[in-house]
Design a protein around this nucleic acid. Structure first.
Length: 683
RNA sequence: GCGCCCGUAGCUCAGUUGGAUAGAGCAUCUGCCUUCUAAGCAGAGGGUCGCGUGUUCGAAUCACGCCGGGCGCGCCA
């Protein structure tokens, strides 16, 4: 609701300024900025536009503000506009109306997007190499992607979630070599092992051992890797057989791990099919024909197909809007830059090349499509599809349908490569799609030295000099996702035991059911972890520490859940109180009354979810929603301590408080849902 | 060397696309459960927003230059 009104105000201001001061000020009009005044007594939205106008009109800002305020006319939802300070325009909302509309909007909202006609947005996230267990870094990726997808859906977009599976890369090859060469296993033996529940953990260790094994003899490593990789890519022999078993089994593990966090996927797009269905060949032809890549005949890169650096450069500077450097400068600089190799002199394609082909497919520009089949090993209740080169299932959704925009959730270290991929699309003439290939980047997760020590990791001299330690799947060092979740669930369980001993002891009617004893700690654990990963903005490096992640107090997921639990308790006990007819005049009287400001701020905040979501999408920053949720919970807790709802003697006031609880609960639950957090009935 | 990111309270971080008196959480200290669940609330201390110059009516935010830290730049993925 807050978004609706501020939008209206912006439009009204823009129209008024245009009409009154003329087109000469055209550049001011599109940038009307609204902000929240520092105090609620100063209104709900303010515009400093008069300062901007003062420059051009050579008039005092306060005078201009006065003119605008008196000439603006009525704006829906706004009671009045006043001039404040040196020339601020402060808008005061109609509190009663805001309350009524928010409650109404609340009951009408459709969260599910059922309209098939809407253009689709792809969010690709997780994309863990299927050769080891998922670790905390992977969880950040998945949680960010999942949350962003939820936010997009909430704003009415049709979103399709894809998880890219590189099941034919060197990482899988390394584990295959581990099984075949180091452990001397047969495909059948590996197949049996792969049925074990913690197969991903087994591979985690094996992968680390393989890395060690390769380090001992670099020449042997290169030879083995080359052979194995080729066999896997071509799908022949024991290598390929084991590769597939490992890949499929590990993907199954990852899906189960992520399902614990409420993360699900619609499509597993696999590299094996990109190879077998010759996606690259199609892309290669397009790139050659358009001149986007060129064959190098002499020098260091003789025999390679490269993308000239000027192309990638252009793409990058273009996003930096205004700064138009002279063409001369750009050329000079590009001389020093290296062209990006797309096809090696031995004829094999690089990762970037494959990614261009894949990105073209996402936008429906490749002229090819996969076949699809249902993933058999999906977590309970999930329907997941995967790409196949076989006949496929005719009833599969149309995954090949062109996307309007694509969000790729990948850590910031791959920014350069993502730019090259986008530049590839642009060079093929798909400028629009290049711009809508959005790299949702985030900084990686590292461990504090204390955390590393807790894990029994011995720091090298170089590492101990640094403020934190990098997670490395290759070294087998990091916090595994399932271990962390187990730890969090155990911590949540003992926290419940400590705080509500009666709940876990099955004493009389206060005891929790067996189901609740399991599910509630789980929900708390998920809330703690997801919120912990979401409260940081994307480009902030998270230094992981058990102490912070396991915390359930302060700015955490459980704090937000707790607010909901409190409301639910009150509403259960106060049931019926809402039935007292609540006159709109009474609400207005309360909100505009002496101590109405605090109540009003709570309502205003509850009604600003749309605003938070809009900002989150605009900045591609899920952390905004986490912040919003925490602040709403905090605002409710303030209200809770100031007013005793059930003991309120004034029936009208009591009915209003209960209705307010209902509104806050609805908004909190909704906001938590966007974060992938469920609020329990009790905790 | 080139490119990207970061530097805000003791610690971890916000700061809504330049606005009014720079905010949270944690930690420390002091209060508050006979009252709707204390996973809570109130209060206190704690700041040259890395440094400098500039643009502006107005800068934590923008520009330039330093200082300090991280990452990327491979015929790896």
């Amino acid at each position: 609701m807050y978004l609706t009104i501020t939008k209206r105000l912006k439009e009204a201001l823009a129209a008024h300024i245009r009409a009154k001061y003329g087109a000469a000020l055209g550049d001011v009009v599109p940038n009307i900025v609204l902000e929240r005044p520092p105090k609620i007594e100063m209104g709900e939205a303010a515009s400093p536009v008069a300062f901007e106008l003062a420059k051009r009109l050579k008039k005092a800002p306060r005078m201009i503000a006065q003119e605008i305020a008196s000439g603006l006319g009525a704006v829906g939802g706004i009671a009045r506009v006043e001039v404040a300070g040196a020339g601020y325009l402060n808008a005061f909302f109609d509190r009663g109306e805001f309350w009524a509309k928010t409650a109404e909007e609340d009951s009408h909202r459709v969260t599910e997007n059922t309209e098939e006609r809407k253009e689709k947005i792809i969010v690709e996230h997780t994309s863990i190499n299927p050769n080891k267990a998922a670790h905390i870094g992977h969880v950040r990726n998945a949680v960010l992607g999942d949350t962003f997808a939820r936010i997009l859906k909430f704003s009415g977009k049709r979103v399709q979630i894809q998880n890219y599976i590189d099941n034919t890369g060197v990482q899988v090859a390394d584990v295959v070599i581990g099984f075949l060469q180091m452990e001397k296993r047969t495909p059948i033996g590996v197949m049996q092992l792969a049925r074990e529940p913690k197969f991903d953990y087994y591979c985690w260790d094996l992968y680390a051992k393989a890395t060690h094994f390769f380090a001992e003899d670099k020449a042997r490593a290169a030879k083995l890797r080359g052979e194995t990789l080729k066999a896997i890519e071509e799908g022949r022999g024991e290598d390929a057989e084991i590769g597939q078993v490992v890949g499929d089994a590990i993907v199954g593990c990852h899906l189960r791990t992520m399902a614990r966090l409420g993360i699900h996927y619609e499509l597993l797009a696999r590299e094996s099919e990109i190879l077998h269905l010759h996606f690259w060949d199609a892309a290669f032809e397009m790139l050659k024909k358009s001149g986007a890549i060129q064959f190098v005949t002499a020098g260091k890169m003789a025999g390679c197909w490269v993308m000239p650096s000027s192309d990638t450069k252009k793409e990058k500077t273009k996003t930096n809007t205004e700064n138009t450097e002279s063409a001369e400068d750009t050329e000079k600089e590009s001389e020093h830059e290296q062209d990006k190799i797309i096809v090696r002199s031995n004829g094999t394609v690089t990762y970037v090349g494959k990614d261009i082909a894949y990105q073209l497919w996402k936008f429906g520009l490749l002229g090819k499509d996969f076949k699809y089949a249902k993933w058999k090993n999906a977590p309970e209740g999930d329907e997941v599809w995967y790409t196949t080169a076989d006949a496929g299932d005719a009833s599969a959704p149309h995954f090949g349908e062109a996307a309007e925009a694509v969000y790729n959730v990948i850590d910031t270290r791959q920014s350069y490569l993502q730019d090259v991929v986008a530049a590839g699309l642009a060079a093929l003439g798909h400028k629009e799609q290049a711009e809508k290939s959005i790299h949702l980047s985030y900084a990686f997760v590292v461990l504090t030295p204390r955390c590393a020590a807790e894990l029994g990791y011995e720091l090298s001299e170089e590492e101990s000099r640094k403020p934190y330690v990098e997670v490395s799947g290759r070294k087998g060092f990091g916090v595994k996702a399932d271990d962390l979740l187990d730890k969090l669930e155990a911590a949540a369980h003992s926290e419940v035991e400590k705080r509500r001993p009666e709940a876990m002891e099955a004493l009389g009617s206060t005891g929790w059911t067996a189901d609740e004893r399991k599910v509630i700690p789980h929900k708390i654990a998920v809330a703690a972890l997801r919120f912990f990963l979401l409260k940081f903005t994307r480009n902030s490096v998270i230094a992981f520490d058990f102490e912070d992640a396991v915390s359930f107090t302060g700015e955490t997921g459980p704090y937000c859940q707790y607010a909901v639990v409190r409301i639910r308790g009150i509403r259960r006990k106060g049931a019926g109180g809402e039935n007292v007819a609540l006159a709109p005049e009474t609400v207005a009287a309360i909100l505009n009354g002496a101590d109405g400001n605090d109540l009003w701020e709570l309502i205003l905040h509850a009604g600003a979810l749309d605003y938070a979501v809009d900002a989150a999408i605009g900045a591609q920053e899920p952390a905004f929603v986490a912040k919003y949720t925490f602040q709403l919970a905090q605002a409710f807790n303030n209200f809770y301590h100031e007013h005793n709802i059930l003991r309120e003697e004034d029936a009208q006031k009591r009915a209003f408080f209960l209705a307010l609880c209902g509104l806050v609960e609805a908004q909190l639950v909704r906001a938590l849902d966007l974060l992938g957090i469920e609020a329990p009935e009790k905790m």
